[in-house]
Amino acid sequence: MRSTTKTAMAAVILSLSLLAAAGFTLHAQGALAESPAPVAAAPLDAPTGTVMLTVTGKIGVTNAEGAAKFDATMLAALPRTNFETSTIWTEGVQAFSGIELRALLDRLGVTDGTLKITAINDYSVQIPVSDIAAGGALLADHRDGKLMTVRDKGPLWLVYPYDSASEFRNEVVYSRSVWQVDRIEVQP
């Protein structure tokens, strides 16, 4: 009788420790969402104001010679997203608003390849299109409700919602957080 109880106890102890180990492992895993299917591209009007962003390369929609150019109005017309987060480059929580990179790519009919994102100071990074998902990279043009200037990391700053998940707080994401963006090239 007594030995049965002891055996059962030992079994409980073992299974509990296994469960704990499993939980620990699970905790470390992140979840990456699948990219949504690309939306059929509509034609793009030509820019009327100062061009803020030029997208070249393998894109489905253009409004210039091999390029899609956007002025402030055009950017404002795209589906907008906003979130609040702190960054390692700024003090305190910032409110960013702008266009999700995923939305921009969808608008331009980009489904695959690699993005080469370049800043005014010629800093550039390469991001595979497959890495870009909704709820992630945002091409922000407003910070704390104000249009960003070059002195203020404008005109466009590629930011991520760093505070929302640890997956946005790593070296790769930080390196991809390009400010003063003005060009994107979609490479095959």
Binding site: I13, L16, S17, A20, G23, F24, H27, A28, I88, S166, R169, N170, E171, Y174, S175
Partner: peptide, 29 residues
């Protein structure tokens, strides 16, 4: 046993955040 598991979990989380910090350690950037 529960105490030990709890402590292990706590230290596990702690180590993970340290590792995270190390990753965030943005010193490169």
């Amino acid at each position: 046993f529960l105490g030990a598991v709890g402590a292990l979990y706590r230290y596990g989380v702690m180590v993970q955040s340290e590792i995270d910090n190390l990753a965030i350690a943005n010193s490169d950037s």
